[in-house]
Nucleic acid binder design. Structure first.
Lengths: 210, 210, 210, 210
DNA sequence: GATGAATGAGTATTCATTCAT
DNA sequence: TATGAATGAATACTCATTCAT
């Protein structure tokens, strides 16, 4: 391993260290109440160091979303590329993937929805913004491809596959947001998993022709 | 009309004046970038006056949501109480109501979802929090009652009606959030209405027994 | 006195209060070592209040210069407009005016030269910059007019009057800067007045035809 | 050449490399906006290395002035020591020397005047401060000696020669500062050389007895 | 000697909130 | 009630300087 590579690796390790700390702090306090000092403290680094790895607070925040988008993208692409799967099986695999995406990082996922709906989105660096945009688009298209497959096979209702993908994703994110907020508002116990299960089941029932 | 009542009425008028101004400013700038001075200016009042009507910025923000929740509540209760409607017709009426809720104040609705997922929610006064909680609960229950009606009639699948209501609401809010954010991210044109239509259609297809 | 006018007056009083404090602090510590908190403390106000009267630190700094420029301008215009004075007497009056300008506010005058030679100059608001520019120009022109008068009368050497004005001003500011800095460097006693006297005497001797 | 000497030479070479870089950066950005990293980058060195050659930023800055002071000193001493020159010719040579000093490094010269009038001056190490002090004093004395010569010869007016030297230097620095700042303020074209010429001419006219 | 990653003290500026009028 | 001037705590970000390698 060359010295160059070692440095590169070290640098990536630091980035991850910061991201992990940021995740904890943002999740607990939200974007605006979390301070860079909080994050630095959590990462056991000094505030200045954060700026060696991330241009500013917003980019640090957005980079969290990027991470889960990358995971999402990999998973849905994988579903899509699997050989020998029928549309039905692909749909099941897709739903399974969504559970994994949620499990991969529930808090960040919620943050990501927050990001989508907020003022932050408008102020990111063009570069990061386009990375997010690209991954979002690719993922939605991959999901749409699954639906296209079922439509072509005549077993799914004939709707615009991208619209179906948007609804699928909306349902997923909507359930997560709402059950989380219900938990906060009503102090109910978290019954996300059950709700998600029924939601996907109903979506499937609506999707299939009879 | 007594002098007391007249005062009460005047006070309410002022509150509305502030809420209307706040709505405009929050919608344009988002919660954190909007300043109390902005809002005061928009309302043609002084900053100090805002605090005579709202305890702080967060409560002012949350009270916007309250307004749309009240509208939502009225509409779904109305659907529910309508005499002589079958479950099928009630579902249609419910979907119609949701379109109206969106039309009533799209920007504030989006803000409300933002509120749900954010740090602000944790810092509201218990009183306002319980008002929000109560309206949310009542509305969800009213929606659930529609589904209960269909389940009892044997035409809807037999699932926990509150879970169905949660999914219904999640789908609605998820579609709005996601299509809005897609618009920002991808600069796509807004195709919310179409997506919402298909979403509700699929939801219904999933809901009905065959 | 109307309420409007009273407010205006109060506001101007505050501005002066801040300017006086800023003068003291800037003079003692220089632009960069002086903090807004220092100035606020000196003015017995809070930091935030400073920003109600001055857009930022640089504008506060520059407004000090403006004050002395205004005084300079008034004095040289006055010399110029005095009826029945010969060029010789006008020159004497001009020199006298320069002594007064120095006496008006020695520390700020030095700061002004500093401003002229520094990075700050490039970052002022266009408005303030143009005020400074205008006053500078007018003052230099007024000085030049004195020389023009002597040239026309045939008693001063025939050089471009603005160039002569620039040299006059350069000599004045150069002597002040250098004797001040000599005092700091060599810890010599301040012999500015003597030097200034000889300087003006020599300038005059150089100016007159023989 | 011993190894010791070689090292010494190498060290001096590095110092010059840094000084040259610092000169460029300070000139472009001014003292406060220039960062040590900028300078290190310009010198193709690392920030840490700068501190092996200069105790801190202020000393690095002041050492630029030292360089031009050294040049000034050499030139004026040379004028003074030239055999067989009358006071008149010495004055001409002195003026010529000043043009050369300006040409040697115009930007740094301006920086030096800035240094003289600024907060930085008060915070230098005693050693560097005394070097500056000594060179300043020697140079002024050398200039004064030229005037002394003319006074003794009965062709210059009988004033304290150091005062005359101070005025001479003030005029020089004043003209440079003012024409430079005029250029920035008024965006006038740079007419320094003409102004300097007239300034020296007038100074001479004032200096000579008639 | 040279490096450059890490530091952390330092600061201009903002803005929700208060309170004397 | 309404005002709006004043507050002052809070914070993102910078950068001179250090020190382990």
């Amino acid at each position: 391993m060359g010295i160059q590579e070692r440095k590169e690796r070290e640098k990536e390790r630091r980035r991850q260290q910061i991201i992990v700390a940021a995740k904890r702090v943002f999740s607990e306090k939200g974007f605006n109440k979390a301070t860079m000092e909080d994050i630095a403290h959590e990462a056991e680094l000094s505030p200045g160091t954060l700026y060696l790895y991330f241009k500013n607070k917003e980019e640090l925040y957005a980079s969290l979303s990027l991470r889960i988008l990358q995971y999402l993208h990999i998973r849905v692409e994988h579903v899509n590329k699997e050989e020998g799967l029928g549309a039905e099986q692909k749909l099941d695999a897709l739903i399974e993937a969504m559970y994994d995406v949620y499990a991969f990082d529930p808090l960040i996922l919620i943050n990501m929805f927050h990001l989508q709906s907020s003022e932050t989105l408008k102020n990111l660096s063009p570069q990061l913004m386009s990375e997010i945009e690209e991954l979002s688009r690719k993922s939605i298209n991959a999901i749409a491809a699954v639906f296209q497959c079922g439509i072509d096979g005549g077993i799914f209702i004939d709707r615009h596959p991208v619209a179906l993908a948007d609804i699928f994703w909306s349902l997923f994110s909507g359930v997560i947001l709402w059950t989380t907020s219900k938990k906060i508002i009503n102090e109910e116990k978290d019954y996300l998993r059950d709700t998600l299960k029924i939601a996907f089941e109903m979506f499937s029932r609506g999707l299939y022709k009879h």
